[in-house]
Every structure is written in structure tokens, then in C-alpha cells.
Amino acid sequence: MVELVTTFNKELVQRLVALEADAFGIGGMNEWHLVPLIRHGHVYIIRKNEDIVGAVQYFLDWDRPKKAYMMGVSIAKEHRGMGIGTKFIQDTFEALAQEGIEEVELTVDPENLTAIKIYENKLGFVVTDFRKNEYGEGEDRLVMKTALAKKGVC
């Protein structure tokens, strides 16, 4: 079951930062990113027992308000490879669709073949663009999009 974070405390933010650091190293989000996203975007978490084992963050596209941008997704190392992340993302898509979101976009490192395969084969994303040096020299990204249905994923 996904949980939309609407209130937070220091411990929750620290756990989310730790998940991000584990997944993305220095490229992960910190308190300065997560607090505004919790307040002004959507941050979903998933728990196993009481421990937060995953998070995904979204914000809206100003030019296309029915499109959400997936900022990031992180799953605790010990829970990866079990399908938890895929199901978690699908559940967040259902929640977004209930709010009238019709499309989700993300960017991914073109060398992250595992993520690309999951995005394409399990979540319905298609590659729509390639952005050279998106985050600096040598930091290329693929742009991927998927359409959402009103009552779930297409």
C-alpha cells in the first residue's frame, strides 16, 4: 500500500535522504529537495512493517498540468529485485490517475539497462527523446513517457 507523505518530521526526511543516497550517491535528493517536494509536489512511500523501504517523487509540468514528472524512485537495497518497486510505481500511477494525471515522464541514464527494461516492459514507458549532457558533461539522459488511464495504468 502506498502512502502519500503530507506531513513529515526530521526522522522521515532523514530516512528518505538515506534511501536516495543509497540509490543515487551524490545525485540523490537531500533535505533541500525533499521538503519542498513534500510540501508542493507528491512524495509517496512504501513500508514493510514500519520501515520505509521505498520512495518516489513527482511534480507537475507547468506547461502540461495533466503531466507529472517522476523525479526519482528509490528502493532499499535489501528489497530490490523482488518486484516491489514495479508494483509500488504502478500503485502511484493509480493514485495520480485518480487526481486527473494523464501522463508520466521521467529521464534515465541510457546505460541503466535494468531500469529501462522495467520502465518499458513492465510500466509501459516509451523512449521519446535523448538529451546529451542533461546534467553536465557526460551525463546523458533518455526521456521516457507513459500514458495513464483514469482507473489505472494503460
Rank of each mutant, 00 (worst) to 15 (best):
L96R: 00
G124L: 05
Y135S: 08
D63S: 11
T107Y: 03
Y119H: 10
D51C: 04
T92D: 10
R39S: 11
L19Q: 02
N112V: 07
L148H: 08
F8G: 04
R39P: 00
N112Y: 10
L34M: 07
M70L: 15
L96K: 03
K122F: 13
P36N: 09
G124C: 10
F88S: 03
R39V: 00
R47G: 06
Y119D: 11
G28Y: 09
A115I: 04
V108C: 12
F8I: 06
Y58D: 00
L34T: 01
M1S: 13
V104E: 06
A21Q: 14
L96D: 03
E105I: 15
D129T: 04
E137T: 15
E111V: 00
G81S: 08
G83C: 11
A23I: 01
F125T: 02
A115E: 09
P110F: 03
D51L: 10
Y119Q: 07
E120H: 07
M70W: 00
M1K: 06
N121A: 14
M29S: 13
F93C: 10
M70F: 01
K145T: 12
E111K: 12
G72I: 00
E103K: 12
L4N: 05
L60A: 09
T146Q: 05
E94C: 07
M70H: 01
F88W: 02
V126N: 06
E20D: 14
H79P: 00
Q57R: 01
D140A: 04
V2A: 05
I116S: 02
G138H: 11
V5K: 00
L113W: 09
Q98N: 13
I118F: 09
V35S: 06
L142W: 12
R131Y: 13
